[in-house]
Measured scan of single mutants.
Amino acid sequence: TTVEVQGVEYRFDNPEEAEKFAKKMAKSLNLRVELHGNKWRVE
Rank of each mutant, 00 (worst) to 15 (best):
R32E: 09
L35A: 07
F12T: 00
N38F: 04
E4R: 07
F12C: 14
L29E: 04
A26Q: 02
K23I: 11
N30E: 06
E17W: 05
H36C: 15
M25F: 04
M25D: 00
N14T: 11
G37W: 02
K23G: 04
H36A: 10
A18C: 09
Q6K: 09
R11Y: 14
R32M: 12
K23W: 09
K24N: 12
P15C: 15
G37T: 03
E17P: 02
N14I: 08
T1V: 11
R11A: 10
E34G: 07
E17T: 08
A26M: 03
V42R: 00
A22D: 01
Y10P: 00
G37N: 11
E16G: 10
L31A: 14
F12H: 01
L35E: 04
E43I: 15
L35R: 12
G7W: 03
Y10N: 02
D13A: 10
L35N: 08
A22F: 02
V8G: 03
V3Q: 01
N38L: 05
N14Y: 09
W40S: 04
E43R: 09
L31D: 02
R32V: 13
N30R: 07
R11H: 13
G37V: 03
G37R: 03
A26G: 12
V8F: 09
T1W: 15
N38S: 07
L35Y: 14
R32Y: 09
G7I: 02
R41P: 03
G37E: 10
L29N: 04
E16S: 10
V8M: 10
F12A: 00
V42W: 02
R32G: 10
A18I: 00
E17G: 04
F21G: 00
Y10K: 03
N14H: 09
T2N: 05
S28C: 15
N38C: 15
V42Q: 03
A18T: 00
N14R: 09
E19H: 06
E16I: 12
E9Y: 06
N14V: 07
K39L: 08
N38Y: 04
V42H: 02
V5E: 01
R41F: 15
V8L: 09
F21A: 02
L31R: 04
L35S: 05
V33L: 13
E16N: 09
T2W: 14
E16K: 11
V42E: 06
A22W: 02
T1M: 13
N14M: 07
L29T: 03
V3W: 02
H36S: 11
R32D: 08
R11G: 06
A18L: 01
E9R: 08
A26S: 05
D13W: 07
N38K: 06
K20Y: 11
K39S: 09
F21M: 02
G7F: 03
H36G: 04
F12I: 01
E43Q: 10
G7H: 05
E16W: 11
K27E: 13
G7P: 00
V8W: 06
N30I: 03
V8K: 11
A26C: 07
K20I: 13
V5Y: 08
E9F: 09
A22Q: 01
R11M: 12
D13V: 08
E19Y: 10
N38R: 05
R41D: 04
Y10T: 04
L31K: 05
T1I: 12
F21K: 00
K20N: 11
Q6F: 15
V3S: 00
R41H: 13
E19P: 00
K27G: 08
Q6R: 11
K24D: 13
V33E: 05
L29W: 03
L29S: 03
R11Q: 12
M25K: 04
K27Q: 12
K39P: 00
K23S: 06
K20C: 15
Q6A: 10
V42G: 03
P15A: 12
E16A: 11
E9W: 05
F21T: 01
A18P: 00
W40I: 10
H36Q: 10
E16L: 12
R11V: 13
V33T: 06
H36N: 10
N14G: 06
E34T: 14
R11K: 13
E19M: 08
Y10C: 14
D13S: 10
R11N: 10
K27H: 11
E34Q: 11
E17K: 06
M25R: 03
K23Q: 09
S28I: 14
M25I: 11
N38A: 06
T2A: 08
G37Q: 05
A22G: 02
E19C: 15
A18H: 00
E43W: 14
K23H: 13
V33G: 03
G37H: 05
D13N: 10
P15R: 07
L29Y: 04
K23E: 06
A22M: 02
K20P: 01
N30P: 01
G37K: 06
G37F: 04
G7N: 05
K39R: 14
V33N: 02
A26F: 02
A18F: 01
R32C: 15
R41N: 06
G7E: 03
R41A: 07
W40G: 03
K20H: 11
A22P: 00
K23R: 14
K24T: 12
L31W: 05
L29R: 04
E43F: 15
A26K: 01
V33M: 12
D13T: 11
E34A: 10
K27F: 07
V5S: 03
Y10H: 06
A22R: 01
K27I: 10
K27T: 10
N30L: 05
M25V: 10
M25Y: 04
K27S: 11
R41K: 12
E34S: 14
R11P: 06
S28H: 13
E17M: 08
Y10A: 02
K20M: 13
F21Q: 01
L35T: 05
E4F: 11
V33K: 02
K23V: 09
P15Q: 08
V8S: 05
F21D: 00
E16P: 03
V42Y: 02
L35C: 15
V33C: 15
K24W: 13
E4A: 08
A22C: 06
A26D: 01
G7T: 02
P15W: 08
K27P: 01
V5T: 02
H36L: 11
K39V: 14
P15T: 06
S28W: 12
K20D: 12
K24Q: 13
L29A: 04
P15S: 09
V5F: 09
T2K: 07
V5R: 01
Y10I: 05
G7C: 15
N30K: 07
D13P: 09
Q6L: 15
H36D: 13
N14D: 14
T1S: 10
K24P: 00
F21L: 02
T2M: 12
E9L: 12
R32S: 12
K24C: 15
E4M: 11
K23Y: 13
W40H: 03
Y10Q: 02
H36W: 06
D13F: 07
P15D: 07
L29I: 02
F21H: 02
A26I: 01
E43K: 09
N14L: 09
F21C: 14
M25E: 03
V33H: 04
M25G: 01
M25P: 00
T1Y: 15
R32L: 11
F12R: 00
E34I: 12
V42P: 05
R11C: 15
A18D: 00
L35V: 09
V5K: 01
Y10V: 05
V8N: 06
V33R: 02
L35I: 07
K39G: 08
H36F: 08
E34R: 11
F12L: 02
L35F: 14
V42N: 02
E4T: 11
G7Q: 03
N30H: 10
A22Y: 01
L35K: 14
E19L: 09
S28M: 14
E43D: 13
E43A: 14
P15E: 07
N14P: 01
F12D: 00
L29F: 05
Q6T: 06
V8D: 04
K39A: 08
E19Q: 06
F21N: 00
D13I: 09
T2R: 08
N30Q: 07
V33F: 14
N38M: 05
F21V: 02
Y10M: 04
N30F: 04
V42D: 05
E9Q: 08
H36M: 10
E34M: 09
M25N: 03
E43P: 06
M25Q: 05
R41V: 15
L29D: 03
K39E: 06
G37A: 04
E16H: 12
K23N: 08
R32N: 12
T1Q: 09
K20Q: 13
N38T: 06
W40L: 08
E43L: 14
E34K: 09
E43Y: 15
P15F: 10
K27A: 14
E19D: 04
A18S: 02
E17L: 10
K24I: 11
L31N: 02
K27W: 06
V3E: 00
V8C: 15
D13C: 15
W40C: 07
K24E: 14
D13R: 08
N30C: 15
K23M: 12
S28L: 15
E9H: 08
H36P: 01
D13M: 08
H36R: 10
E17R: 05
L29V: 03
Q6Y: 13
Q6G: 10
V3M: 01
W40Y: 08
L31C: 15
S28Q: 14
Q6D: 08
V8Y: 09
